[in-house]
Design a binder for these strands. Structure first.
Length: 574
RNA sequence: UGGGGGAUAGUUCAACGGUAGAACUGCGGACUCUGACUCCGUCAAUCUAGGUUCGAAUCCUAGUCCCCCAGCCA
Protein backbone atom coordinates (compact mmCIF):
# COMPACT_ATOMS: atom_id res chain seq x y z
CA UNK A 1 0.00 0.00 0.00
CA UNK A 2 2.95 2.27 0.53
CA UNK A 3 3.38 2.46 -3.20
CA UNK A 4 -0.01 3.98 -3.84
CA UNK A 5 1.41 7.29 -4.93
CA UNK A 6 3.71 5.74 -7.44
CA UNK A 7 1.02 3.40 -8.66
CA UNK A 8 -1.30 6.30 -9.27
CA UNK A 9 1.42 8.05 -11.19
CA UNK A 10 0.85 11.19 -9.21
CA UNK A 11 4.00 11.97 -7.29
CA UNK A 12 3.47 15.72 -7.49
CA UNK A 13 0.52 15.66 -5.14
CA UNK A 14 2.70 14.16 -2.42
CA UNK A 15 4.40 17.22 -0.99
CA UNK A 16 2.76 20.55 -1.62
CA UNK A 17 4.75 23.55 -0.52
CA UNK A 18 8.17 21.95 -0.36
CA UNK A 19 11.24 24.07 -0.81
CA UNK A 20 14.91 23.99 0.04
CA UNK A 21 14.44 25.72 3.41
CA UNK A 22 11.80 23.23 4.51
CA UNK A 23 14.09 20.46 3.32
CA UNK A 24 16.79 21.75 5.63
CA UNK A 25 14.41 22.09 8.56
CA UNK A 26 13.10 18.60 8.02
CA UNK A 27 16.60 17.17 7.78
CA UNK A 28 17.66 18.97 10.98
CA UNK A 29 14.63 17.64 12.79
CA UNK A 30 15.09 14.11 11.48
CA UNK A 31 18.77 14.08 12.39
CA UNK A 32 18.03 15.42 15.83
CA UNK A 33 20.15 18.51 15.34
CA UNK A 34 17.25 20.56 16.65
CA UNK A 35 14.49 19.35 18.95
CA UNK A 36 11.98 22.01 17.95
CA UNK A 37 12.16 24.48 15.12
CA UNK A 38 12.17 28.13 16.15
CA UNK A 39 11.97 30.85 13.51
CA UNK A 40 11.47 34.58 13.64
CA UNK A 41 10.16 37.39 11.53
CA UNK A 42 12.46 40.36 12.19
CA UNK A 43 11.13 43.58 10.65
CA UNK A 44 12.76 46.93 11.18
CA UNK A 45 10.00 49.35 12.22
CA UNK A 46 10.93 51.99 9.68
CA UNK A 47 8.00 51.59 7.33
CA UNK A 48 4.94 49.51 6.60
CA UNK A 49 5.04 45.87 5.63
CA UNK A 50 4.57 45.03 1.96
CA UNK A 51 3.82 41.90 0.01
CA UNK A 52 7.52 41.08 -0.11
CA UNK A 53 7.48 40.84 3.68
CA UNK A 54 4.47 38.58 3.38
CA UNK A 55 6.76 36.04 1.77
CA UNK A 56 9.04 36.07 4.79
CA UNK A 57 6.11 36.08 7.21
CA UNK A 58 4.39 33.14 5.54
CA UNK A 59 7.65 31.23 5.38
CA UNK A 60 8.70 31.78 8.97
CA UNK A 61 5.31 31.37 10.61
CA UNK A 62 4.36 28.67 8.13
CA UNK A 63 7.41 26.54 8.86
CA UNK A 64 6.86 26.89 12.60
CA UNK A 65 3.27 25.73 12.21
CA UNK A 66 4.03 22.87 9.86
CA UNK A 67 6.86 21.45 11.93
CA UNK A 68 5.38 21.98 15.36
CA UNK A 69 7.68 24.79 16.37
CA UNK A 70 7.18 28.46 17.08
CA UNK A 71 7.84 31.76 15.39
CA UNK A 72 8.80 34.99 17.11
CA UNK A 73 7.98 38.50 16.06
CA UNK A 74 11.09 40.52 16.73
CA UNK A 75 11.51 44.16 15.92
CA UNK A 76 14.99 44.85 14.69
CA UNK A 77 15.11 48.29 16.25
CA UNK A 78 18.78 49.13 16.33
CA UNK A 79 18.58 52.41 14.43
CA UNK A 80 16.46 54.95 16.33
CA UNK A 81 17.00 57.55 13.65
CA UNK A 82 14.66 55.72 11.30
CA UNK A 83 12.27 53.89 13.54
CA UNK A 84 8.90 54.89 14.92
CA UNK A 85 6.20 53.50 17.17
CA UNK A 86 3.62 54.00 14.42
CA UNK A 87 5.42 51.40 12.34
CA UNK A 88 5.63 48.97 15.23
CA UNK A 89 1.87 49.16 15.67
CA UNK A 90 1.21 48.85 11.95
CA UNK A 91 3.46 45.83 11.62
CA UNK A 92 1.76 43.97 14.47
CA UNK A 93 -1.63 44.74 12.96
CA UNK A 94 -0.58 43.54 9.53
CA UNK A 95 1.01 40.30 10.66
CA UNK A 96 -2.11 39.47 12.65
CA UNK A 97 -4.35 40.34 9.75
CA UNK A 98 -2.34 38.01 7.55
CA UNK A 99 -3.40 35.29 9.94
CA UNK A 100 -0.36 34.67 12.11
CA UNK A 101 0.10 34.63 15.84
CA UNK A 102 3.33 35.01 17.75
CA UNK A 103 1.69 34.23 21.08
CA UNK A 104 3.90 35.43 23.92
CA UNK A 105 6.89 35.70 21.65
CA UNK A 106 7.04 39.39 20.92
CA UNK A 107 10.58 40.72 21.19
CA UNK A 108 12.72 43.71 20.40
CA UNK A 109 16.41 43.76 19.63
CA UNK A 110 16.47 46.74 21.97
CA UNK A 111 15.53 44.38 24.80
CA UNK A 112 18.99 42.92 24.35
CA UNK A 113 21.01 46.14 24.29
CA UNK A 114 22.56 45.49 27.70
CA UNK A 115 23.58 41.95 26.81
CA UNK A 116 24.91 43.01 23.45
CA UNK A 117 26.94 45.70 25.16
CA UNK A 118 28.40 43.10 27.48
CA UNK A 119 29.41 40.95 24.54
CA UNK A 120 31.08 43.92 22.94
CA UNK A 121 33.19 44.40 26.05
CA UNK A 122 34.02 40.70 25.98
CA UNK A 123 35.31 41.12 22.46
CA UNK A 124 37.43 44.06 23.52
CA UNK A 125 38.86 42.08 26.41
CA UNK A 126 39.75 39.28 24.03
CA UNK A 127 41.49 41.75 21.75
CA UNK A 128 38.92 41.18 19.04
CA UNK A 129 37.44 44.66 18.91
CA UNK A 130 38.78 48.19 19.10
CA UNK A 131 37.64 51.75 19.22
CA UNK A 132 38.41 53.60 16.01
CA UNK A 133 38.78 57.40 15.98
CA UNK A 134 38.89 57.70 12.23
CA UNK A 135 36.27 59.81 10.58
CA UNK A 136 33.63 58.20 8.45
CA UNK A 137 35.47 59.32 5.33
CA UNK A 138 38.74 57.89 6.55
CA UNK A 139 37.15 54.60 7.34
CA UNK A 140 35.66 54.49 3.90
CA UNK A 141 38.92 55.41 2.24
CA UNK A 142 40.83 52.79 4.19
CA UNK A 143 38.33 50.06 3.52
CA UNK A 144 39.86 49.54 0.09
CA UNK A 145 37.83 48.57 -2.94
CA UNK A 146 36.42 45.42 -4.42
CA UNK A 147 39.80 44.57 -5.87
CA UNK A 148 42.21 46.24 -3.45
CA UNK A 149 42.61 45.31 0.21
CA UNK A 150 41.93 47.85 2.93
CA UNK A 151 44.45 49.42 5.28
CA UNK A 152 44.58 48.87 8.99
CA UNK A 153 43.33 51.72 11.09
CA UNK A 154 46.06 53.58 13.01
CA UNK A 155 43.94 52.96 16.12
CA UNK A 156 43.74 49.25 15.59
CA UNK A 157 46.37 48.35 18.15
CA UNK A 158 45.14 50.21 21.16
CA UNK A 159 45.42 48.41 24.45
CA UNK A 160 42.50 46.57 25.93
CA UNK A 161 42.32 49.06 28.75
CA UNK A 162 42.28 52.02 26.45
CA UNK A 163 39.59 50.43 24.28
CA UNK A 164 37.49 49.59 27.30
CA UNK A 165 37.81 53.08 28.66
CA UNK A 166 36.93 54.70 25.37
CA UNK A 167 34.02 52.36 24.71
CA UNK A 168 32.58 53.03 28.16
CA UNK A 169 32.90 56.74 27.56
CA UNK A 170 31.15 56.30 24.22
CA UNK A 171 28.31 54.71 26.10
CA UNK A 172 28.37 57.49 28.67
CA UNK A 173 27.77 60.00 25.94
CA UNK A 174 31.07 61.81 26.20
CA UNK A 175 31.57 62.06 22.45
CA UNK A 176 29.54 63.56 19.65
CA UNK A 177 27.83 61.54 16.93
CA UNK A 178 30.31 59.96 14.58
CA UNK A 179 33.37 60.72 16.69
CA UNK A 180 34.28 57.10 17.24
CA UNK A 181 33.04 53.62 16.50
CA UNK A 182 33.70 50.19 17.89
CA UNK A 183 35.01 47.84 15.24
CA UNK A 184 35.68 44.13 15.14
CA UNK A 185 39.32 43.28 14.60
CA UNK A 186 38.79 40.99 11.66
CA UNK A 187 40.68 41.13 8.38
CA UNK A 188 41.21 44.33 6.41
CA UNK A 189 42.42 42.37 3.42
CA UNK A 190 39.51 39.99 3.18
CA UNK A 191 37.90 39.59 -0.21
CA UNK A 192 34.64 39.79 1.68
CA UNK A 193 34.29 43.46 2.46
CA UNK A 194 31.98 42.72 5.37
CA UNK A 195 34.96 41.23 7.16
CA UNK A 196 37.12 44.34 6.84
CA UNK A 197 36.76 45.31 10.50
CA UNK A 198 33.00 45.86 10.48
CA UNK A 199 31.49 48.53 12.71
CA UNK A 200 29.86 47.04 15.80
CA UNK A 201 28.69 50.17 17.55
CA UNK A 202 28.19 53.75 16.51
CA UNK A 203 27.45 56.85 18.55
CA UNK A 204 23.89 57.97 17.91
CA UNK A 205 22.64 60.52 20.32
CA UNK A 206 19.03 60.00 19.35
CA UNK A 207 15.97 59.01 21.36
CA UNK A 208 14.82 55.47 20.79
CA UNK A 209 11.09 54.64 20.59
CA UNK A 210 11.52 52.07 23.35
CA UNK A 211 14.67 52.80 25.31
CA UNK A 212 14.30 56.55 25.25
CA UNK A 213 17.53 58.38 25.95
CA UNK A 214 19.28 55.69 27.95
CA UNK A 215 21.58 54.73 25.10
CA UNK A 216 24.01 56.96 23.25
CA UNK A 217 25.47 54.12 21.24
CA UNK A 218 23.63 51.54 19.18
CA UNK A 219 24.73 48.18 17.82
CA UNK A 220 24.88 47.56 14.09
CA UNK A 221 22.74 44.98 12.36
CA UNK A 222 25.62 42.54 12.11
CA UNK A 223 26.38 42.72 15.79
CA UNK A 224 22.76 42.55 16.89
CA UNK A 225 21.02 40.08 14.65
CA UNK A 226 22.75 36.79 15.22
CA UNK A 227 23.11 37.32 18.94
CA UNK A 228 19.44 38.20 19.19
CA UNK A 229 18.68 34.96 17.39
CA UNK A 230 20.90 33.12 19.86
CA UNK A 231 19.21 34.70 22.86
CA UNK A 232 15.80 33.61 21.61
CA UNK A 233 16.94 30.13 20.69
CA UNK A 234 16.18 30.63 17.01
CA UNK A 235 17.19 27.53 15.09
CA UNK A 236 16.69 28.69 11.52
CA UNK A 237 17.28 32.35 10.81
CA UNK A 238 15.90 33.04 7.35
CA UNK A 239 16.86 36.19 5.49
CA UNK A 240 17.30 37.43 1.95
CA UNK A 241 20.13 36.88 -0.50
CA UNK A 242 21.97 40.12 0.12
CA UNK A 243 22.93 38.87 3.56
CA UNK A 244 24.67 35.85 2.18
CA UNK A 245 28.11 37.34 2.56
CA UNK A 246 27.29 38.51 6.06
CA UNK A 247 26.96 34.92 7.13
CA UNK A 248 30.66 34.48 7.93
CA UNK A 249 30.32 37.40 10.33
CA UNK A 250 27.11 36.00 11.76
CA UNK A 251 28.84 32.70 12.41
CA UNK A 252 31.97 34.39 13.76
CA UNK A 253 30.03 36.21 16.50
CA UNK A 254 28.12 33.07 17.43
CA UNK A 255 31.38 31.14 17.65
CA UNK A 256 33.36 33.75 19.54
CA UNK A 257 30.81 35.03 22.01
CA UNK A 258 29.36 33.26 25.00
CA UNK A 259 25.88 33.02 23.50
CA UNK A 260 23.19 30.62 24.72
CA UNK A 261 22.56 28.82 21.42
CA UNK A 262 23.87 28.42 17.90
CA UNK A 263 21.40 29.58 15.31
CA UNK A 264 22.09 29.24 11.59
CA UNK A 265 21.31 31.66 8.83
CA UNK A 266 19.73 30.65 5.52
CA UNK A 267 19.11 32.93 2.59
CA UNK A 268 16.35 33.02 0.00
CA UNK A 269 15.47 35.32 -2.89
CA UNK A 270 13.23 38.24 -2.11
CA UNK A 271 9.96 38.72 -3.94
CA UNK A 272 9.73 41.01 -6.95
CA UNK A 273 6.57 41.75 -8.89
CA UNK A 274 6.06 43.26 -12.32
CA UNK A 275 4.71 46.84 -12.36
CA UNK A 276 5.67 47.10 -8.71
CA UNK A 277 8.53 48.43 -6.64
CA UNK A 278 9.06 46.77 -3.30
CA UNK A 279 11.66 48.81 -1.58
CA UNK A 280 10.93 50.63 1.62
CA UNK A 281 12.90 53.55 0.35
CA UNK A 282 10.62 53.96 -2.67
CA UNK A 283 7.44 53.27 -0.74
CA UNK A 284 8.46 55.85 1.84
CA UNK A 285 9.09 58.42 -0.86
CA UNK A 286 5.77 57.62 -2.50
CA UNK A 287 4.09 58.46 0.78
CA UNK A 288 6.22 61.45 1.77
CA UNK A 289 6.14 62.89 -1.73
CA UNK A 290 2.36 62.75 -1.83
CA UNK A 291 2.28 60.48 -4.86
CA UNK A 292 -0.20 58.32 -2.97
CA UNK A 293 -2.59 59.02 -0.15
CA UNK A 294 -0.60 57.17 2.49
CA UNK A 295 0.87 53.82 3.42
CA UNK A 296 -2.56 52.24 3.08
CA UNK A 297 -3.42 53.80 -0.26
CA UNK A 298 -5.13 50.98 -2.17
CA UNK A 299 -2.57 51.33 -4.95
CA UNK A 300 0.28 50.54 -2.61
CA UNK A 301 1.74 47.03 -2.46
CA UNK A 302 1.71 47.31 1.31
CA UNK A 303 -0.29 44.87 3.38
CA UNK A 304 -2.33 47.81 4.65
CA UNK A 305 -2.93 49.03 1.10
CA UNK A 306 -3.96 45.61 -0.17
CA UNK A 307 -6.28 45.16 2.79
CA UNK A 308 -7.96 48.49 2.20
CA UNK A 309 -8.28 47.65 -1.45
CA UNK A 310 -10.18 44.53 -0.56
CA UNK A 311 -7.61 41.81 -1.10
CA UNK A 312 -8.27 38.99 1.36
CA UNK A 313 -5.41 37.70 3.51
CA UNK A 314 -6.15 34.24 2.18
CA UNK A 315 -5.26 35.39 -1.34
CA UNK A 316 -1.90 36.71 -0.19
CA UNK A 317 -1.11 33.50 1.65
CA UNK A 318 -2.11 31.42 -1.33
CA UNK A 319 -0.06 33.55 -3.67
CA UNK A 320 3.03 33.14 -1.52
CA UNK A 321 2.47 29.39 -1.49
CA UNK A 322 2.25 29.32 -5.26
CA UNK A 323 5.41 31.27 -6.02
CA UNK A 324 7.61 29.00 -3.96
CA UNK A 325 10.96 29.70 -2.36
CA UNK A 326 14.32 29.53 -4.08
CA UNK A 327 17.67 31.25 -4.35
CA UNK A 328 17.37 32.57 -7.89
CA UNK A 329 16.44 36.21 -8.33
CA UNK A 330 13.09 36.43 -10.02
CA UNK A 331 10.26 38.74 -10.93
CA UNK A 332 6.81 37.28 -10.55
CA UNK A 333 4.15 38.27 -13.06
CA UNK A 334 1.61 40.46 -11.28
CA UNK A 335 -0.98 38.47 -13.20
CA UNK A 336 -0.29 35.53 -10.97
CA UNK A 337 -1.20 37.57 -7.93
CA UNK A 338 -4.33 38.81 -9.65
CA UNK A 339 -5.33 35.25 -10.34
CA UNK A 340 -5.13 34.28 -6.67
CA UNK A 341 -7.06 37.39 -5.68
CA UNK A 342 -9.89 36.60 -8.09
CA UNK A 343 -9.92 33.00 -7.05
CA UNK A 344 -10.32 33.87 -3.37
CA UNK A 345 -12.90 36.56 -4.03
CA UNK A 346 -15.01 34.49 -6.39
CA UNK A 347 -15.66 31.95 -3.68
CA UNK A 348 -17.14 34.31 -1.12
CA UNK A 349 -18.09 37.66 -2.59
CA UNK A 350 -21.84 38.25 -2.72
CA UNK A 351 -23.13 39.40 -6.09
CA UNK A 352 -24.74 42.77 -6.60
CA UNK A 353 -25.59 44.91 -9.59
CA UNK A 354 -23.97 48.27 -10.02
CA UNK A 355 -23.74 50.48 -13.06
CA UNK A 356 -20.44 52.29 -13.05
CA UNK A 357 -20.99 54.61 -16.03
CA UNK A 358 -24.76 54.92 -16.39
CA UNK A 359 -26.69 55.23 -19.61
CA UNK A 360 -30.38 55.91 -19.19
CA UNK A 361 -32.86 53.47 -20.68
CA UNK A 362 -36.57 54.12 -20.98
CA UNK A 363 -38.80 51.06 -21.43
CA UNK A 364 -41.49 52.56 -23.55
CA UNK A 365 -44.06 49.82 -23.11
CA UNK A 366 -43.65 49.65 -19.33
CA UNK A 367 -46.28 51.69 -17.47
CA UNK A 368 -45.16 54.94 -15.96
CA UNK A 369 -45.07 55.02 -12.18
CA UNK A 370 -45.12 51.25 -11.91
CA UNK A 371 -42.46 49.00 -10.44
CA UNK A 372 -42.10 45.37 -9.46
CA UNK A 373 -39.77 43.17 -7.46
CA UNK A 374 -37.64 40.45 -8.97
CA UNK A 375 -35.58 37.72 -7.35
CA UNK A 376 -31.81 37.68 -7.64
CA UNK A 377 -29.47 35.14 -6.09
CA UNK A 378 -26.62 36.35 -3.91
CA UNK A 379 -24.14 33.76 -5.08
CA UNK A 380 -24.53 31.50 -8.10
CA UNK A 381 -22.49 28.67 -6.60
CA UNK A 382 -23.75 28.91 -3.06
CA UNK A 383 -27.47 28.53 -2.45
CA UNK A 384 -26.89 29.14 1.25
CA UNK A 385 -26.04 32.73 0.45
CA UNK A 386 -29.73 33.28 -0.26
CA UNK A 387 -31.34 35.82 -2.52
CA UNK A 388 -32.64 39.37 -2.53
CA UNK A 389 -35.29 41.40 -4.33
CA UNK A 390 -34.50 44.03 -6.92
CA UNK A 391 -36.81 46.67 -8.30
CA UNK A 392 -37.63 46.96 -11.98
CA UNK A 393 -39.29 50.04 -13.44
CA UNK A 394 -39.75 52.07 -16.62
CA UNK A 395 -36.51 54.00 -16.28
CA UNK A 396 -33.30 52.11 -15.87
CA UNK A 397 -29.57 52.53 -16.15
CA UNK A 398 -27.29 50.22 -18.04
CA UNK A 399 -23.55 50.40 -18.55
CA UNK A 400 -22.49 52.82 -21.26
CA UNK A 401 -20.12 50.26 -22.76
CA UNK A 402 -22.98 47.77 -23.09
CA UNK A 403 -24.47 49.76 -25.94
CA UNK A 404 -23.03 50.47 -29.37
CA UNK A 405 -24.98 52.19 -32.09
CA UNK A 406 -22.85 50.57 -34.78
CA UNK A 407 -21.63 47.33 -33.31
CA UNK A 408 -18.54 45.56 -34.66
CA UNK A 409 -19.03 41.90 -35.60
CA UNK A 410 -18.27 40.26 -32.26
CA UNK A 411 -20.26 42.71 -30.15
CA UNK A 412 -23.40 41.02 -28.91
CA UNK A 413 -24.66 43.40 -26.31
CA UNK A 414 -27.29 46.05 -26.98
CA UNK A 415 -27.55 47.98 -30.22
CA UNK A 416 -30.47 49.22 -32.29
CA UNK A 417 -32.75 46.31 -33.12
CA UNK A 418 -30.97 43.66 -31.04
CA UNK A 419 -32.46 41.86 -28.10
CA UNK A 420 -30.63 41.21 -24.84
CA UNK A 421 -31.53 40.04 -21.39
CA UNK A 422 -31.49 42.24 -18.34
CA UNK A 423 -30.28 39.92 -15.66
CA UNK A 424 -33.07 38.49 -13.49
CA UNK A 425 -35.58 40.71 -15.36
CA UNK A 426 -36.72 40.80 -18.97
CA UNK A 427 -35.57 40.69 -22.55
CA UNK A 428 -35.41 44.15 -24.02
CA UNK A 429 -34.98 45.50 -27.51
CA UNK A 430 -33.55 48.87 -28.46
CA UNK A 431 -35.92 50.90 -30.56
CA UNK A 432 -34.42 54.36 -30.48
CA UNK A 433 -31.42 56.46 -29.61
CA UNK A 434 -31.51 59.93 -28.11
CA UNK A 435 -28.49 62.15 -28.60
CA UNK A 436 -27.36 65.53 -27.36
CA UNK A 437 -26.13 68.42 -29.46
CA UNK A 438 -22.66 66.95 -29.51
CA UNK A 439 -23.98 63.77 -31.01
CA UNK A 440 -23.40 61.69 -27.89
CA UNK A 441 -25.91 59.05 -26.90
CA UNK A 442 -27.71 60.23 -23.79
CA UNK A 443 -30.67 57.92 -23.62
CA UNK A 444 -32.01 54.71 -25.11
CA UNK A 445 -35.60 53.94 -25.93
CA UNK A 446 -36.42 50.27 -25.54
CA UNK A 447 -39.31 47.87 -25.31
CA UNK A 448 -39.52 44.84 -23.05
CA UNK A 449 -41.23 41.51 -23.53
CA UNK A 450 -43.52 40.93 -20.53
CA UNK A 451 -43.48 37.20 -21.27
CA UNK A 452 -39.80 36.98 -20.42
CA UNK A 453 -40.18 37.93 -16.78
CA UNK A 454 -37.40 36.42 -14.69
CA UNK A 455 -35.16 36.19 -17.71
CA UNK A 456 -36.46 33.31 -19.82
CA UNK A 457 -38.52 33.32 -22.96
CA UNK A 458 -41.41 30.84 -22.99
CA UNK A 459 -40.93 30.36 -26.71
CA UNK A 460 -37.38 29.25 -26.06
CA UNK A 461 -35.66 32.00 -28.00
CA UNK A 462 -32.17 32.88 -26.90
CA UNK A 463 -30.25 36.09 -26.49
CA UNK A 464 -26.53 36.41 -26.80
CA UNK A 465 -26.00 38.74 -23.90
CA UNK A 466 -27.14 39.20 -20.34
CA UNK A 467 -26.51 42.64 -18.91
CA UNK A 468 -26.55 44.19 -15.48
CA UNK A 469 -28.78 47.16 -14.77
CA UNK A 470 -30.39 49.16 -11.99
CA UNK A 471 -33.70 50.93 -11.70
CA UNK A 472 -33.12 54.68 -11.98
CA UNK A 473 -35.52 55.65 -9.22
CA UNK A 474 -34.56 52.85 -6.88
CA UNK A 475 -30.79 52.91 -7.27
CA UNK A 476 -28.43 54.81 -5.04
CA UNK A 477 -25.45 56.94 -6.05
CA UNK A 478 -21.86 56.09 -5.19
CA UNK A 479 -18.31 57.03 -5.93
CA UNK A 480 -16.20 54.23 -7.33
CA UNK A 481 -12.41 54.22 -7.39
CA UNK A 482 -10.75 52.18 -10.07
CA UNK A 483 -7.09 51.37 -9.51
CA UNK A 484 -4.49 50.73 -12.15
CA UNK A 485 -0.83 49.84 -11.68
CA UNK A 486 1.16 52.53 -9.89
CA UNK A 487 3.92 52.18 -12.45
CA UNK A 488 3.43 52.06 -16.17
CA UNK A 489 6.32 49.73 -16.89
CA UNK A 490 6.64 46.08 -15.93
CA UNK A 491 10.16 46.85 -14.74
CA UNK A 492 10.07 50.33 -13.21
CA UNK A 493 13.39 52.01 -12.55
CA UNK A 494 14.64 51.69 -9.04
CA UNK A 495 14.96 54.22 -6.27
CA UNK A 496 16.83 56.79 -8.37
CA UNK A 497 14.07 57.90 -10.72
CA UNK A 498 10.99 55.86 -10.08
CA UNK A 499 8.95 59.03 -10.41
CA UNK A 500 9.49 58.99 -14.17
CA UNK A 501 7.69 55.66 -14.40
CA UNK A 502 4.71 56.57 -12.25
CA UNK A 503 1.42 55.88 -13.98
CA UNK A 504 -0.56 59.13 -14.08
CA UNK A 505 -3.75 57.10 -14.41
CA UNK A 506 -3.28 54.85 -11.43
CA UNK A 507 -6.52 56.18 -9.97
CA UNK A 508 -9.74 56.62 -11.93
CA UNK A 509 -12.55 58.31 -10.09
CA UNK A 510 -16.09 57.45 -11.14
CA UNK A 511 -18.47 59.78 -9.38
CA UNK A 512 -21.75 58.86 -11.01
CA UNK A 513 -22.13 55.17 -10.32
CA UNK A 514 -25.57 53.78 -9.44
CA UNK A 515 -26.02 50.76 -7.21
CA UNK A 516 -28.88 48.50 -6.36
CA UNK A 517 -29.88 49.24 -2.76
CA UNK A 518 -28.57 45.94 -1.40
CA UNK A 519 -25.05 47.04 -2.31
CA UNK A 520 -25.23 49.67 0.39
CA UNK A 521 -25.26 46.97 3.06
CA UNK A 522 -21.58 46.44 2.35
CA UNK A 523 -19.09 46.59 5.16
CA UNK A 524 -15.63 48.06 4.92
CA UNK A 525 -13.10 45.63 3.45
CA UNK A 526 -15.76 42.98 2.87
CA UNK A 527 -15.67 41.90 -0.75
CA UNK A 528 -18.66 42.16 -3.06
CA UNK A 529 -18.88 41.39 -6.75
CA UNK A 530 -20.56 43.91 -8.96
CA UNK A 531 -21.66 41.54 -11.65
CA UNK A 532 -19.79 41.68 -14.92
CA UNK A 533 -17.51 44.38 -13.49
CA UNK A 534 -15.31 43.01 -10.77
CA UNK A 535 -14.77 42.77 -7.05
CA UNK A 536 -15.24 45.81 -4.88
CA UNK A 537 -15.31 46.79 -1.25
CA UNK A 538 -16.53 49.74 0.69
CA UNK A 539 -13.77 52.20 1.46
CA UNK A 540 -13.34 53.79 4.85
CA UNK A 541 -13.75 57.21 3.18
CA UNK A 542 -17.46 56.45 3.03
CA UNK A 543 -19.61 58.99 4.86
CA UNK A 544 -23.31 59.30 5.62
CA UNK A 545 -23.66 61.38 2.47
CA UNK A 546 -21.41 59.42 0.15
CA UNK A 547 -20.72 55.77 -0.46
CA UNK A 548 -17.20 55.10 -1.67
CA UNK A 549 -16.22 51.78 -3.23
CA UNK A 550 -12.78 50.53 -4.19
CA UNK A 551 -12.43 48.21 -7.09
CA UNK A 552 -10.21 45.45 -5.78
CA UNK A 553 -9.83 43.90 -9.19
CA UNK A 554 -11.82 43.57 -12.36
CA UNK A 555 -13.28 40.32 -13.66
CA UNK A 556 -11.37 38.64 -16.43
CA UNK A 557 -12.60 40.19 -19.64
CA UNK A 558 -11.97 38.10 -22.70
CA UNK A 559 -14.10 40.37 -24.86
CA UNK A 560 -11.94 43.38 -24.04
CA UNK A 561 -8.90 41.24 -24.67
CA UNK A 562 -10.16 40.21 -28.09
CA UNK A 563 -10.87 43.81 -28.97
CA UNK A 564 -7.37 44.79 -27.91
CA UNK A 565 -5.97 41.96 -29.99
CA UNK A 566 -7.88 43.05 -33.06
CA UNK A 567 -6.66 46.59 -32.62
CA UNK A 568 -3.09 45.37 -32.33
CA UNK A 569 -3.54 43.21 -35.40
CA UNK A 570 -4.83 46.11 -37.45
CA UNK A 571 -1.91 48.25 -36.40
CA UNK A 572 0.60 45.57 -37.24
CA UNK A 573 -1.13 44.57 -40.47
CA UNK A 574 -1.21 48.15 -41.76
C1' U B 1 41.44 41.49 -12.86
C1' G B 2 38.42 40.61 -5.14
C1' G B 3 34.50 37.93 -2.39
C1' G B 4 29.60 35.69 -2.28
C1' G B 5 25.38 33.65 -5.01
C1' G B 6 22.35 32.06 -9.29
C1' A B 7 20.94 29.98 -14.37
C1' U B 8 14.81 24.36 -16.20
C1' A B 9 8.56 26.41 -20.89
C1' G B 10 6.82 33.57 -21.73
C1' U B 11 6.64 33.76 -15.83
C1' U B 12 7.29 31.30 -10.97
C1' C B 13 8.53 26.72 -8.95
C1' A B 14 9.27 20.72 -9.10
C1' A B 15 12.22 16.72 -10.60
C1' C B 16 17.77 15.17 -5.07
C1' G B 17 21.90 9.61 -11.34
C1' G B 18 16.44 6.38 -13.96
C1' U B 19 9.81 8.64 -18.47
C1' A B 20 11.70 16.75 -17.55
C1' G B 21 6.23 17.84 -14.25
C1' A B 22 2.87 21.71 -12.10
C1' A B 23 0.65 26.53 -11.60
C1' C B 24 0.02 31.20 -14.02
C1' U B 25 0.05 33.09 -19.01
C1' G B 26 -0.90 32.13 -24.32
C1' C B 27 -3.81 29.44 -28.02
C1' G B 28 -8.33 26.30 -29.29
C1' G B 29 -12.96 24.40 -27.64
C1' A B 30 -17.40 23.13 -24.31
C1' C B 31 -20.80 25.20 -20.88
C1' U B 32 -23.24 29.59 -19.22
C1' C B 33 -29.28 34.33 -17.08
C1' U B 34 -22.07 37.45 -15.25
C1' G B 35 -18.15 37.79 -22.60
C1' A B 36 -17.30 35.74 -15.11
C1' C B 37 -16.86 30.95 -12.87
C1' U B 38 -16.18 25.84 -14.30
C1' C B 39 -14.53 22.02 -17.64
C1' C B 40 -11.66 19.88 -21.79
C1' G B 41 -7.67 20.16 -25.13
C1' U B 42 -3.07 22.41 -26.64
C1' C B 43 1.79 25.29 -27.59
C1' A B 44 6.00 25.70 -24.68
C1' A B 45 12.14 24.68 -21.17
C1' U B 46 17.22 21.97 -18.83
C1' C B 47 22.94 28.73 -20.43
C1' U B 48 27.28 26.69 -23.69
C1' A B 49 31.15 23.05 -24.78
C1' G B 50 33.55 18.86 -23.34
C1' G B 51 33.83 14.58 -19.93
C1' U B 52 32.17 10.39 -16.34
C1' U B 53 28.05 6.79 -16.72
C1' C B 54 24.09 1.57 -19.42
C1' G B 55 21.70 6.28 -18.25
C1' A B 56 23.07 13.41 -16.59
C1' A B 57 18.77 19.06 -15.45
C1' U B 58 21.33 16.39 -11.49
C1' C B 59 28.30 14.39 -10.97
C1' C B 60 33.33 16.48 -13.06
C1' U B 61 36.13 20.26 -16.13
C1' A B 62 36.24 24.78 -18.79
C1' G B 63 33.46 28.82 -20.30
C1' U B 64 29.12 32.40 -20.83
C1' C B 65 25.50 35.44 -18.75
C1' C B 66 22.81 37.59 -14.45
C1' C B 67 22.48 39.32 -9.20
C1' C B 68 24.71 41.08 -4.42
C1' C B 69 28.88 43.46 -1.48
C1' A B 70 33.20 49.19 -0.94
C1' G B 71 26.58 52.61 5.20
C1' C B 72 28.66 54.71 11.44
C1' C B 73 21.21 51.26 6.90
C1' A B 74 18.82 46.67 7.61
Amino acid sequence: MASDDKASGNPTAAEPGRDFIRDIVKADLDAGRVAQVVTRFPPEPNGYLHIGHAKSICLNFGIAEEFGGRCHLRFDDTNPVKEEQEYIDAIERDVRWLGFDWGQHLYYASDYFERLYGWAEDLIRKGQAYVDDQSQDEIRANRGTLTEPGKNSPFRDRTVDENLDLFRRMRAGEFPNGARVLRAKADMSSGNINLRDPVLYRILNAPHPRTGTTWKIYPSYDFAHGQSDAIEGITHSICTLEFEDHRPLYDWFIANLDVPSTPHQYEMARLNLTYTLLSKRVLTELVRGGHVGGWDDPRMPTIAGLRRRGVPAEAIRDFIKRIGVAKANSVVDAGMFEFTVREALNKTALRRMAVLRPLKVVIENYPEGQSEELDAVNHPDDAAAGSRKIKFSRELYIEQEDFMEVPPKKFFRLSPGTEVRLRYAYFIKCTGVVKNAAGEVTELRCTYDPATKGGNAPDGRKVKATMHWVSAAHSIPAEVRIYNPLFNRPDPSGAENFAADLNPNSLELLTGARLEPAAADAKIETPVQFERQGYFCLDRDTTAEKLVFNRTIGLRDSFAKDVAKDVAKEKAGG
